[in-house]
């Protein structure tokens, strides 16, 4: 199996602070890989640097065979790399349906000439997209809310919107930065099933930053552990549970004493 993502010896420094200090790992095509680690390990910075929001100081990031380290964010997304955010960032003043419509690339009505002078063509295209978006919204349980302003949704619904919007973009790979943060246990279950279903039906690769190990256990085939800006370990969750370094980093020295003593 080939790798959809390769992170090679990436360093990120903010002034004197080394947020990522030589981190390497890979994500196999078609898998859901988890990225875990204690707070401040550099997970969100890593997601940011893969997506292009954070520029790396050195190292390289290979996505789908291309070195994307120097590309601007939008070019990485055009290549099929789509991210979601730790805090939902919906387009509040637009309807749920519009939130989905806007993200599809390559719409003919995005050029000024077509937009103004050939509205018929673009309208037909939009109707097609509306049907597609409604199907996705239906899957994620947001169909009834499609004409609601996104700012009026509840926290959990915004999470679902964030995910359905990412699906609408038809990515090759999804970067999910704590998609379950602040979500009720019932919805965590549902979101997890959605991700698994999506991965199985479309073969979409995912990198999932997550603190909830139960979720990781259920849906992720591999786990990468980060601590203080470095990759600490990689493997299945079962393997990592046996790894003393991981347990120590994740749960603190206290446990080490208890385990050791």
């Amino acid at each position: 199996m080939s790798n959809v993502l390769e992170v090679n010896d990436v360093h990120v420094a903010f002034g004197g602070l080394k947020a990522i200090d030589g981190c390497s790992f890979t994500v196999e095509k078609g898998t859901i890989t988890a990225l875990i680690g204690p707070n401040g390990a550099g997970k969100s910075t890593m997601v940011g640097s893969i997506a292009g929001a954070v520029s790396i100081t050195s190292g390289s990031i290979i996505f789908d065979g291309n070195n994307i380290s120097g590309l601007p964010t939008y070019k990485r997304a055009q290549g099929g790399l789509i991210r979601t955010y730790q805090i939902s960032r919906e387009f509040g003043g637009m309807t749920v349906l519009e939130n989905l419509l806007v993200v599809r690339l390559g719409q003919s009505g995005e050029s000024l000439i077509n937009a103004v002078f050939r509205p018929k063509k673009s309208k037909d295209e939009t109707n097609q997209l509306v049907a597609e978006a409604n199907d996705i919204l239906n899957t994620f349980g947001l169909y009834r809310l499609r004409n609601e302003y996104a700012s009026n949704l509840s926290g959990g619904q915004k999470r679902l919107l964030e995910l359905s919007r990412a699906v609408m973009a038809k990515p090759k790979m999804l970067l999910l930065d704590e998609p379950m943060a602040g979500v009720t246990p019932a919805l965590i279950e549902i979101l997890g099933q959605h991700l698994l279903e999506l991965n199985r039906s479309t073969g979409m690769s995912m990198l999932l930053v997550e603190h909830n190990l139960e979720v990781v256990d259920k849906i992720c085939s591999r786990v990468v552990v980060m601590a203080v800006g470095k990759r600490l370990a990689e493997g299945t969750l079962g393997e990592l549970r046996q790894n003393r370094d991981v347990v120590e980093a994740y749960l603190g020295g206290e446990v080490h004493e208890r385990v050791g003593g």
């Binding site: 997506a51 292009g52 929001a53 964010t73 939008y74 070019k75 997304a77 055009q78 789509i82 991210r83 955010y85 960032r89 919906e90 387009f91 509040g92 003043g93 637009m94 519009e98 939130n99 806007v102 993200v103 690339l105 995005e110 919007r165 973009a169």
Partner: peptide, 15 residues
């Protein structure tokens, strides 16, 4: 209008 709402997100979706 999406850029008006959140430019970074539109950027992250490839526009």
């Amino acid at each position: 209008r999406a850029i008006r709402e959140d430019q970074d997100v539109v950027d992250a979706f490839g526009k």
